[in-house]
Nucleic acid binder design. Sequence first.
DNA 1: GGCCCACTTTGATCTGAATCAACTTTGGAT
DNA 2: ATCCAAAGTTGATTCAGATCAAAGTGGGCC
Lengths: 255, 255
Amino acid sequence: MNRGFFDLDQDTMAIPSFSRIKCSDCPIRHRAVCARCDTDELETLEGMKSYRSYAAGEVILWRGEPLNFVASLVAGVASLSKTMEDGRTQMVGLLLPSDFIGRPGRKLIEFDVTATTDVTLCCFDRKPFEKLVDETPHVAQRLMELALDELDAARDWMLLLGRKSAREKIATFIDMLVRRSQGTEPLANTVIRLPMTRDQIANYLGLTLETVSRQFSALKKEGVVDFTDRRQFEIKDIVALQDATGDDSDGGVLS
Amino acid sequence: MNRGFFDLDQDTMAIPSFSRIKCSDCPIRHRAVCARCDTDELETLEGMKSYRSYAAGEVILWRGEPLNFVASLVAGVASLSKTMEDGRTQMVGLLLPSDFIGRPGRKLIEFDVTATTDVTLCCFDRKPFEKLVDETPHVAQRLMELALDELDAARDWMLLLGRKSAREKIATFIDMLVRRSQGTEPLANTVIRLPMTRDQIANYLGLTLETVSRQFSALKKEGVVDFTDRRQFEIKDIVALQDATGDDSDGGVLS
DNA sequence: GGCCCACTTTGATCTGAATCAACTTTGGAT
DNA sequence: ATCCAAAGTTGATTCAGATCAAAGTGGGCC
């Protein structure tokens, strides 16, 4: 069964069952840090790994905390965020299944990691994992690719934060959810679940929750999207949505 | 002679001389991608490298252009930027000496790379460099570290773009210049050269050039900084400056 | 030396999003 | 079923920074 990235949080029941999952049956097998491991290496990982679960809202790691384990996100959504002394906060990363937590050679993390929905991690103790990285070039390579993907995402996000209007930010956010869910869903259905509250979306986009709410309302009134529920909506006019993102209309196609 | 990062642009004469520099005498020897290479490996690099220079304002690479070479920035300052259809632009990276251009496994770049000041690159053709990376674990490791450093910088920047006020942005920017120059300057002198125009600073910080100018004027009037020239100023009150950044007062020190 | 153009500063006005403030909806606990 | 807290909506007002406009300033070039 082919679940959307954002669906698992609804059904916490499924999570404990991961403790019995074999690497070869793992849903993120082909995208995570272990993507290019062969059968032998998978065997080694099998012996090293352990699963941990966190309920929506729980903090997985605090900023500055020593990082004793690294992990792949198996199910759910987690966020990386920075908070200023006076409480202003900004999300600086959104982790989806197959994303990696922790970095080789760094003992501390520079941001809080929080479970946005219920989350399951596949954890490895730091030391043995680092040994593995040193000895297994394709794990190191995959880690590099994941880091570069994050860097690209961070840069698109910087453009959004620095230059886009509230409307463009919201449209870009929805468009991202559409693209992400099409990776798993078989394209057809345009019903999208929001993995976060209005407040979390605001922290993601550098807005306030009131502005987020108003922009959603505006897009609804214009018939671009239709909310079936406050956490679930349907895309009515994908062209209008993409126009509203402010991004290039041709997705990088050479002209 | 120990030059500041931002000084070389003044004195273009020095740049062509890099073509004769040996890796072992290279100013970025210990920080660049080659940082951990041994004498033999340096020998190999010596044979592969070539220098290129760009005048301030020249575009080094256009977005979407095939990336036939990778490079280390030897001298000067370059910027990575994204531009929207209507002309709004946002810098998404600032490259200083020892920073790396190009990524293993990616043929295209997602942003423009522009020489902010006069710039000298140490270039390697793509193919042989990738072969070297595959065969030399510590080059791959160093590349990973550089990518992770960029990612950390991008995340701090996201907090700045999403949540900081114009005043905080400017103070953070100046504070960054101070920290960077202290890496090379022997700490004492507090005269800082701006490597960019007001317009470029605005694109860096997600502001307009008028707002940048006004905030500089305000900090001058308050006696926090003193401009000797429009490209050069002196820090008069570092404590007030750091207060104005909005960042934690204790630089991550455990309390 | 003087002219020109790119850069910068400063002022006046406008506006999008923040802030402040009710009020409504929803879903879970009892 | 009812209550309650958390989440969301909507409206009124304010304000930081954008935009529009007009002068300064200085470095490079003939």
